[in-house]
Design a protein around this nucleic acid. Structure first.
Length: 111
DNA sequence: ATTCTGACGTGGG
DNA sequence: CCCCACGCCAGAA
């Protein structure tokens, strides 16, 4: 109960919380890191529930193409893009520029 | 119980 | 690079 309820959701949140400022990652990368490779959709589902939590930078999670697929789920229309640009990430037409440079791999960067 | 959808990813052409 | 089909698991109707 204290912090760790369901393994899946908690694991997703822990990884997302550890995403550094100005960096982004993909659903599949998180899913694979928590051992749920192939169920990347569930990561997105967990993000939906993360809206209740304060320290979950869901705007730093995008799909493998670096596209802001979930921007439509934020409060505003461009909230997600604004948050990313606020961190120094360039976003054009919902597409993150230099995605490879800002991409943060939990398996590689995190231990 | 059945059916469809969804903040995705991979493989084949 | 693009497009199409399948797999994935959970929740809503």
């Amino acid at each position: 109960m204290s912090g760790n309820d369901s393994n899946f959701f908690s694991k997703v949140y822990e990884v997302v919380k550890q995403i550094p400022y100005g960096r982004v990652t993909s659903y599949g990368a998180i899913a694979k890191h928590i051992g749920a490779a192939g169920s990347a959709r569930m990561v997105g589902w967990a993000m939906n529930a993360s809206h209740n939590l304060p320290d979950i930078p869901a705007h730093r999670v995008v799909n493998r193409k670096g596209l802001l697929t979930g921007k439509h789920h934020f409060d505003g229309t461009n909230l997600m893009q604004q948050l990313l640009e606020s961190e120094g990430i360039i976003v054009i037409e919902n597409q993150i520029q230099d995605f490879e440079k800002v991409f943060w791999d939990p398996e590689k960067e995190l231990n």
